[in-house]
Design a protein around this nucleic acid. Structure first.
Lengths: 219, 219
DNA sequence: ACCTGAACACCGTTCAAGT
DNA sequence: ACCTGAACACCGTTCAAGT
């Protein structure tokens, strides 16, 4: 621990810590602070006080490092939305908090969020990455299933519903961190989207809405 | 015209065409074929048969070129969704086509679409870029206003509604081109999203939905 | 499982001097 | 409004030889 804190090391010594972890953390830190385009392997190594070649003992190349950064991002995202759902006590209130937490994560870590979705990682097939991305998605599905059990969400295929909800929060998050939305309207749009999601997926008595053509019927 | 087609030029000759346009087109072509990360100014110049320094007569730097690429992308996107709306005869059917056209553009030009939103262009303040992005958004607003006039969409603030619709189609588009959605479910999710948008924004008699808390009331 | 040091090919960008 | 040609600083990556 103390060894990881001292960035400069005495000549001739080895790192001896968890270098993979240290490299990953430093990469995340750099990306968060200055964006992906500012990330250079040489600078990461220099800041950790290791040689430039040391990185290749843990990552095949720069893309592999970015894949790990993205994987880490999905893990953090899952933790935060699950915490929001739990702390919110589940149900409709917890689900709203979950949606807000998702957008909040993207807004708090725009550059990191971009690495997760921005295509800088064509290694979309990486098993670890796929597992973590699927894990975050499953947290959403689980919240929907729980609400279905309580009669709060219609009995549609939860995976289908989750895809829709994901698209909305992801779309809002991307537009916000892209600066496409003015600051004044950001919060309003996010709340609006959350409400549209809730009213769009909520359970209701179908028979009382005669004029609405349901998605199932039109597919 | 014919001169622009011959990529290789005789020694000592000038380009004498619309070099700016040629550089932009070649950049778009490269990005479409191989992605942004494969775009190098040297290769673009070489393929056009001009010197590497010629580019700097038209673009301040690489970022300026990418900004122009993004601007061009928004222009193309606007043209295609407006055409879909018009060809679809407006109304609810035209609006569905518009949504499909949006996602279709992203799917057909994933790398280009990413440049428009991927943050590779921190020049978000560029006036031309802002104007074209706003233009595409306005096409969406106009379609919503037209539907409101026909009583097809609720009388909420159209800009607000447009933000929501944009977030949904953008979210779906991003998830699809990111490979987060399996191919089999892509079309289904897109159609589901379009239907959710339509039913989520459609005009209906509020008095007959006593249990629904409307967004306005909760903001 | 790291280190040093050198090297390679490639990049964006600048400059000087032309036409 | 272009051209040539040289140069600079920086990059990811590899290799050889160590401990």
């Amino acid at each position: 621990m103390t060894e990881q804190r001292s960035r400069r090391k005495r000549r001739g010594a080895y790192h001896h810590g968890d270098l993979r972890r240290a490299l990953l953390d430093e990469a995340v830190r750099t990306i968060r602070a200055d964006g992906v385009e500012a990330l250079t392997l040489r600078a990461v190594a220099a800041r950790l006080g290791v040689s430039r070649t040391a990185l290749y003992r843990h990552f095949a190349d720069k893309r592999a490092l970015l894949t790990a950064v993205a994987t880490e991002g999905f893990r953090m995202l899952r933790e935060q939305i699950v915490a929001a759902w739990t702390d919110g006590g589940g149900g409709r209130a917890g689900f709203r908090d979950m949606g807000r937490a998702y957008v909040a994560f993207a807004v708090a870590n725009p550059a990191h969020y971009r690495v997760m979705f921005g295509g800088s990682v064509p290694e979309a097939g990486d098993p670890d990455l796929r597992r973590e991305a699927a894990g975050a998605f499953q947290a959403l599905v689980a919240a929907l299933v729980a609400q279905q059990r309580d009669g709060l969400v219609r009995a549609d295929d939860p995976t289908q519903l989750a895809h829709f909800v994901w698209a909305v929060v992801h779309g809002v998050a991307m537009l916000v961190i892209d600066g496409q939305l003015h600051d004044e309207v950001t919060a309003t749009v996010a709340e609006h989207a959350v409400e549209r999601i809730v009213t769009g997926i909520e359970a209701r008595d179908v028979s009382s809405y005669p004029s609405i053509s349901w998605p199932r019927a039109t597919l």
